[in-house]
Every structure is written in structure tokens, then in C-alpha cells.
Design a protein around this nucleic acid. Structure first.
Lengths: 163, 163
DNA sequence: TGCTATTATCATGTGAATATGATAAACTCG
DNA sequence: CGAGTTTATCATATTCACATGATAATAGCA
């Protein structure tokens, strides 16, 4: 039961970037050390998050990972989406025929639980999980980065999507 | 996310035995056909359920699987127990240190959902999932089997546990 | 006793999730 | 431009859930 290990890594990583990252990007080494998660595996995971528009990444010296959006807008569902198809698995008994038309025996009873799970992942944000004091710092960091006049660089986000 | 495929097989199998089994035991072939589940894999699963005291099994001609208890007493948690450790996974982020003392960032918010899941599996029984009409038949079947004077045979249940 | 039906068990295979190590690509700055 | 830093990607290994096929053990019965 529950979400995949990769998704758990992802949530913890995004949360870490939210709390400890600021104007300066965090390196994979830093994050993987902090979380006790394999480096290269995390690298792939972070890259997926960048493609999904959750993080932005940059290579080379002064590179690393930052949030792509305010933590208030990053729901757990969005963070989990690249790794776990949270929506697709609503039948407790995995009956293919379980739908509005022909329900599995557990359908009605399970529906309530299932809905509360969907709501949890859809409404809980990274900001909700942050220590209160770090939320303010993030606001400042993102604001300064978005200030016009800053030099544009090529970063990997949802916009810059390569095959 | 959710429970393992084996647990889903198990619930569906126990439910099938409850609804279509009676005084005469059901064969693996019958059940696996009905559920569209691999035969030998199901056999192992059913055997585990017998060891767990959910089913009783018997070999040879006239053998097969029957419920070991009234469906009202078979909670989903009991059926799932041999395959999924539902209780062990309470931390959303899989933090080892997540407990009463040091909670993970999601602890408080996740606790409510987690509790409702635990309650669902602990309180929902096989009887709850049965079609209403089949419940009565099971009552009769189990009662006749328990009637004193019936010859005792060696069956595999929680009591007859072999290493 | 021996034949047959049925579950129990063993040995093995397969695929996906997880992980590792090496190399390529991109960026910074002297 | 070239050296160094960092992410991106590729090739491969490991592990585990799920599955398959063959054989052993047990029970009923002629």
C-alpha cells in the first residue's frame, strides 16, 4: 500500500529545496546527503520534477535545483504525478469493470476513503509541510529571482521540454 | 499506492468462497477461473489464508477451500495481514524517525487519513461486501458443518500450523 | 493396497522499481 | 578558448512482487 519510494523521495526533496534552498541553487550532492538517498537516483528524480515544472535546474558551476513555483502552489499531487498515477487506482479490488455502471463489491464503501485520499494529495501543499519560519525566506528568494532585468539563462522546466 | 496485488486476489477469493462456497469445498481451479487469477499463485495465496485461520483447506478428492469463520468475523485487515503489513506503514514520507517523539513534516496531517484507512480495513468485513442474499446460505452451511457428531478430519487452519 | 483427485511445495522465470557507475552535455569563469 | 563544476543520460546491476511448471504429499475410494 501507499505511494512509491520514488514519490516519497520526491516529496522530501522538494520540501528540502523549499526549506534550505534560497537565491542560490542546491546541488544534488547536498540534497542526497541530507535525505540519505542515492545520488544518481535522486538526480533522475529531480530532473523529472524539473520537467514537470516543480523545480528548475541549471548545470555547471553555480548550477543546481530551485523551486519553480511558490510552495503554496506545489501540491503533493503535482509532486507525485511524474512517478505515481494517483488518480488511476480507485478500485480497491482492481476490478477492470469497476465503474459507475458495474461497481465492485467494495465500491461504495471504498469511495469515501478514496475521495479523502485524493483530496489530501490535491490540497496539501509543500508550504503546508514547511516549518513556519522558512516560508517567509522562500517568498523573498523567489521574488528577487523574478525581478525584471535579471539575466535570462536556459533552465529546465516544464517550458523547456526536450524529448 | 494502495494494497498489493496479492492482497487484492486474497480479498476477492475469500469473498468468492463466502458467496459461492457452502457445505462443499471449492477447488482452486474453480476459484482461479472465476477470478481470472493464475492458478498456482492463487493456490499459494489460499494456503496462506488457511494458515492465517481465514480459510480451511483439505486435500484429496472432496477437498478444497471453505471459510474458517463466519464472514462477519473476517475483516479485510485479517485477510490482508499475511500479505501486506498494513500497520507498519504509517509515515507518509517513510522517515524511520517518524514517531510520537520526532514526527515527520507530514505527520499530523497524514495521521487523520491514516486512521480512517486503518478503521476501514479493521471494520469492513467480508460479510459487508457480500450480496445480501448469500449471507444467509453461509450461516446455514457453517452451522451444519459445526454440528457435533460430524467426523473430524485433518484440515489446515491456524491451529494446524506446520513450519 | 493402489488409483485418482486435490492441495502443498519447490525450483525457476519475468518484469518493474530501485540503485550504481561511467560518460556526455552544458554552463562559469579564468 | 580551455579547465573545472555541475546536471543529464546511458548502460547495467539488484531486488522483489508476481507468475509458471513440475513434483510431492495427502485424502477418498474401488
Amino acid at each position: 500500500m501507499w505511494i512509491s519510494g520514488t514519490t516519497q523521495y520526491a516529496i522530501r526533496a522538494v520540501l528540502y529545496v523549499a526549506e534550505y534552498g534560497g537565491a542560490v541553487p542546491l546541488h544534488v550532492d547536498n540534497i542526497s546527503h541530507a535525505l540519505g538517498v542515492p545520488r544518481n537516483y535522486l538526480s533522475k528524480t529531480l530532473h523529472s520534477l524539473a520537467r514537470a515544472g516543480v523545480l528548475r535546474s541549471e548545470r555547471g558551476p553555480r548550477g543546481g535545483f530551485q523551486l519553480a513555483e511558490l510552495p503554496e502552489r506545489l501540491t503533493l499531487a503535482r509532486v507525485a504525478a511524474p512517478f505515481d498515477d494517483l488518480a488511476q487506482r480507485h478500485c480497491l479490488l482492481r476490478q477492470q469493470t469497476c465503474g459507475a455502471r458495474t461497481a465492485c463489491p467494495a465500491h461504495v464503501r471504498w469511495e469515501a476513503i478514496s475521495a479523502s485520499l485524493t483530496e489530501f494529495f490535491g490540497k496539501t501543499t509543500i508550504a503546508d509541510l514547511m516549518r513556519p519560519d522558512s516560508a517567509a525566506r522562500v517568498q523573498a528568494a523567489l521574488a528577487s529571482r523574478a525581478r525584471p532585468g535579471a539575466r535570462r539563462k536556459r533552465t529546465t522546466t516544464a517550458a523547456t521540454r526536450r524529448k
